[in-house]
Design a protein around this nucleic acid. Structure first.
Length: 747
DNA sequence: ATCCTCCCCTAC
DNA sequence: TAAGGTAGGGGAGGAT
């Protein structure tokens, strides 16, 4: 009888085998899979995993584009070149890293471009990796359903079907002209290219958000206009809050409303749902950018009145602000440096605690529908009718571009003949490798969303959570059959590539049984959470990258980092030894660093003991005075900076002559991999270098260097390297603490 | 010829 | 077979 209409946000692979699908109603799914179990949400856990996932990725490179809380794109081109490893080796390393740090498995798809990398991810799931090579593309893509192409959803899928096209191979048979005529110039061209595996979109680590909005299309029932208006005003406040949080202002305001379609039942089948609606929108462009709830509110009311919709028939409303710009006060001025965006880190730290009375959200108890007897009508928007009208015989609509263009064959790693009609042309000369990573959690992001919901709805949501289920796993795409992991040819030339990494199922060890996750009845919360992530993530990444200043004070006190506690012994030992200057006999050969470092003062010929500094602090002209001992004589002490360079324009810190990250990494790699036991002298040089980075305020680089070292050293068979790392980190943290009052969080 | 609105579609 | 919510991209058609 009344089957649960809770939706399944994400289900386990076991449940999928039974025919359960994401988005399915729980009641229906339960019939397919009697053992189906619902798992409650754990947003906090999702957040944590997402943060760790991104931190892990960021320890490799910053060429990351966050797609969502559990999925990211990585342009691994330079990273691979730098590391000199094969794509699969990198993927393996990242996956095990993620697994170790989050307990979640991740899948990675790699190929020459974003499109292919993402398609490869599907093959990689669950818990696998797949590198799609240029020569495999043609055969691979030919049989892919067109719906596997990004941008081809229900509507386009229907239309293509009506055109007799089901697979990419079939789509390849259509001419550019025809496609553009059917779908528009831009979309037509994209389809033309995608079905051949062509894609030249770059991985964009810094994307600016273009709009801020808030809407509610569930539980909206007004009996009077005043209620509707009051709701719009509270929505305005919510938008203001979001604008503030992001440090933005906008000039364009759009009001969107979902209104019950004339013939549709007053109460849809789904309790509180919006049912079949027409959607309307109205917008205005203001003279000045704003983030004021009052101003927004008054404009919204004008728009609302101009729409002339019956309050009683409203089923959903949304407010969107566009044409964004930074909040003036947040300018470069010294006064108010509030950074524009809220970072994930902030979110994570703040957790729910930080959100005091976020807003009086749509306060007005927007009439939550009383227990309404569900009529029957299925609710649905006017969506794609079964089959689109067959395409009108082609007459030509004048579409600009693309006269004739040789139909390129499918993609190879290289930019195939580029279609000219195309607009952009990124022109990439180098091979690329993109990665995409996904974590299982449904969302993690922002619980604050919950707080923004009307109390009543929130309550119901929470209630339903406790009784329904939800999931750990992730997301959106449902993977095709778990294929076998492609062989990983080691030394293959790093092809252009895109890597997609995804962490599937259960973040929790719960593993076992086929578990499914179902969404609670009032699932609206989840989506928001989901959606909230991308931008936030990006903001987080951006800020995290730039100013790693972050170190949170608390982290210092509460080392959640097990490592900190475990390392004590070795660390002290090393330290002690160090003090005595009595290092164990380094049975080391010439240190790589030294060897390749010219600048090194030959002085250090001292054989046994102090090795020449492999790492030298490089001074720039300006501050030569400051460090009189130039190339140094190995000064033992970490040389804690006098105060953070106040004045002197600091030079670029260098380690044994190297200052660029790739060089630093190479240097460190050689050091750790070619020597069995580090020399004190060298360790100190590294500390010195890191200290210099602190002075130079280049915390981003410091973070990367530290994380790189961590991987290198803790991975070494020789435990002394691990101790060396602890020693270095400890010293750096001290300096950071002194300089910034907080430490770097190394996970 | 653009630009701007008002949608629609998709993704996550 | 439906529905959550946020955001970006594109298209059709009118306005400039």
């Amino acid at each position: 009888m009344a089957l649960s209409m809770a939706e399944i946000a994400s289900c386990s692979y076991e449940a999928r085998q039974a025919g359960v699908r994401n988005g399915m109603f729980f009641g229906q799914a339960k019939r397919l899979c009697p053992g189906l179990q619902a798992v409650p949400y754990d947003f906090q856990a999702y957040k944590e995993v997402a943060l760790v996932l991104y931190e892990t990725l960021a320890s490799y490179t910053h060429e990351i584009e966050a797609l969502s809380c559990d999925e990211a794109l990585v342009d691994a081109s330079s990273l691979l070149a730098e590391l000199g490893v094969a794509p699969d080796e990198l993927a393996n390393a990242i996956r095990s890293d993620v697994r170790e740090r989050t307990g979640c498995s991740a899948s990675i798809g790699m190929s020459s471009n974003i499109l292919l990398a993402r398609m490869a991810t599907r093959k990689a799931k669950p818990n696998g990796q797949c590198c799609l090579k240029p020569e495999e593309v043609d055969d691979f893509i030919r049989d892919q359903p067109v719906t596997s192409l990004p941008g081809v959803g229900r509507s386009m899928g229907c239309k293509l079907t009506s055109l007799g096209v089901r697979t990419c191979g079939e789509l390849q048979q259509m001419s550019m002209l025809r496609l553009q005529k059917e779908f528009g110039p831009r979309t037509g061209q994209t389809l033309f290219r995608f079905c051949r595996g062509l894609d030249d979109r770059p991985v964009r680590s810094e994307k600016e958000r273009k709009s801020v909005s808030a809407e509610m299309n569930y539980g909206i029932r007004f009996t009077q206009v005043s209620e509707a208006e009051a709701f719009l005003l509270s929505l305005s406040q919510e938008v203001q809050r979001r604008l503030h949080a992001a440090g933005l202002q906008g000039r364009r305001l759009t009001l969107k409303a979902m209104v019950r379609k004339p013939g549709a039942p007053v109460e849809p089948a789904k309790y509180g749902g919006h049912g079949i609606c027409d959607s309307l929108a109205r917008s205005v462009t203001l003279d000045q950018p704003t983030d004021s709830a009052e101003l927004i509110g008054s404009e919204v009311l004008k728009l609302f009145r101009s729409m002339k919709v019956s309050a009683a028939d409203m089923r959903g409303v949304g407010l969107q602000i566009q044409l964004l710009g930074p909040h003036p006060a947040a300018g470069p001025g010294p006064q108010d440096p509030p950074r524009p965006a809220r970072s994930i880190r902030d979110l994570l730290l703040a957790q729910r605690s930080a959100h005091p009375a976020a807003m009086a959200p749509p306060t007005t108890p927007v009439g939550i529908p009383p227990a309404a007897p569900p009529p029957s009508g299925a609710t649905n928007q006017s969506r794609c009718p079964p089959a689109r009208a067959p395409p009108p015989p082609s007459s030509c609509s004048a579409l600009s571009s693309s006269p004739t263009e040789p139909v390129p064959s499918t993609s190879t790693g290289e930019p195939p003949p580029r279609y000219n009609g195309g607009l952009h042309t990124p022109a990439r000369t180098q091979p690329h490798l993109n990665c995409s990573i996904q974590v299982p959690s449904p969302s993690q992001v922002d619980l604050s969303v919950l707080e923004a919901l009307p109390a009543e709805i929130r309550q119901q949501v929470e209630q339903s959570w406790s009784r329904s289920a939800d999931l750990p796993n992730g997301t959106p795409l449902t993977p095709p059959p778990p294929l076998t992991p492609p062989p990983a040819p080691p030394p293959s030339p790093p092809p252009r590539g895109t890597l997609i990494l995804q962490i599937p199922g259960g973040a929790e060890p719960s593993g076992g049984t086929g578990i499914v996750l179902a969404l609670p009845d009032f699932s609206q919360v989840d989506p928001e959470v989901f959606a909230a992530l991308p931008p936030e993530l990006q903001e987080e990444l951006r800020s995290a990258y730039r100013r790693k200043t972050s170190a949170q004070p608390q982290s210092t006190m509460a080392p959640k980092n097990a490592l900190l506690q475990l390392r004590a012994p070795g660390y002290d030992q090393l330290k002690r030894r160090h003090k005595r200057k009595n290092l164990s006999p380094a049975k080391k050969g010439p240190s790589p660093m030294k060897a390749r470092l010219p600048g090194n003062s030959p002085a250090k010929s001292s054989p046994a003991k102090l090795q020449p500094l492999m790492l030298k602090y490089e001074d720039t002209p300006t501050d030569t005075l400051k460090r009189e001992n130039g190339p140094s004589t190995s000064s033992l002490k970490p040389d804690v900076p006098q105060h953070p360079s106040k004045l002197a324009p600091s030079p670029h810190p260098a380690l044994a002559g190297a200052s660029e990250l790739p060089d630093i990494r190479t240097l460190l790699r050689e050091w750790v991999t070619t020597i069995s036991e580090p020399m004190e002298e060298d360790i100190l040089q590294v500390v010195k270098y890191c200290t210099a980075l602190v002075d130079d305020r280049d915390l981003e680089k410091l973070d990367l260097v530290i994380k790189y070292m961590k991987r290198l050293m803790q991975q070494s068979v020789e435990s002394v390297w691990s101790m060396a790392f602890d020693f270095i980190l400890d010293n750096v943290q001290v300096v950071l603490q002194q300089t910034y009052g907080s430490t770097l969080k190394i996970t």
